[in-house]
């Protein structure tokens, strides 16, 4: 066990943890930030995507030791019902969800895309999301939502 200080959604948290604990379990179980989802634990599905230093990363593959001290953003830190992020508003406007288990990962991956490329083409969006899995088949709406968010942001 060792002490780590994490900078998450603008707040600092100091926790005593095994250094190899994946960030995913720290977010979900130690901090109650459950929007970041366990899907495979193998970095294959994207459900656990968060932003670290502005890059979209799979939190199941990031040991807490390597995340310490770097700014981490999760879906909870993106926006609120009172002050939604344009991506969140666009997903609601497009009704871009079925079960929505994949959606926080989709939004966080799209967030990374829009940071790099504020005016993506449809092909850019599909390519950026191509390693995020959705089982319900909500892809068409997700693409439309990212397009809509790109227009307003």
């Amino acid at each position: 066990m060792a002490e780590f200080t994490l900078d998450i959604n603008g707040s600092r948290h100091t926790l005593d943890l095994d250094a190899d604990t994946p960030l995913l379990y720290v977010l979900r179980n130690e901090l109650g930030l459950t929007a970041t989802r366990f899907g495979c634990g193998l970095g294959e599905c994207g459900a656990c995507t968060v932003s670290i230093d502005g890059r979209s990363l799979r939190s199941c593959q990031v040991p807490v030791a390597s995340a310490a001290g770097r700014p981490i953003l999760t879906l909870e830190g993106l926006g609120t019902p009172e002050d939604p992020h344009p991506l969140q508003q666009a997903f609601i406007d497009e009704q871009a969800a079925q079960c929505a288990f994949c959606i926080s990962g989709m939004i966080m991956t799209a967030h990374g895309l829009l940071q790099r490329n504020p005016s993506p083409t449809e092909a850019d969006i599909k390519s950026a999301l191509s390693a995020n899995l959705c089982g319900c088949g909500t892809h068409l709406r997700i693409v439309r939502a990212v397009q809509r968010a790109a227009k307003v942001s």
Binding site: T34, R37, E76, P81, I92, Q95, A100
Partner: peptide, 19 residues
């Protein structure tokens, strides 16, 4: 009618059984 469950899911406030 807009789906009632979607906003909480989009803001990360929805509790699935996993949560």
């Amino acid at each position: 009618v807009a789906r009632v469950d979607i906003p909480d899911k989009i803001f990360g406030r929805f509790a699935y059984v996993q949560d």
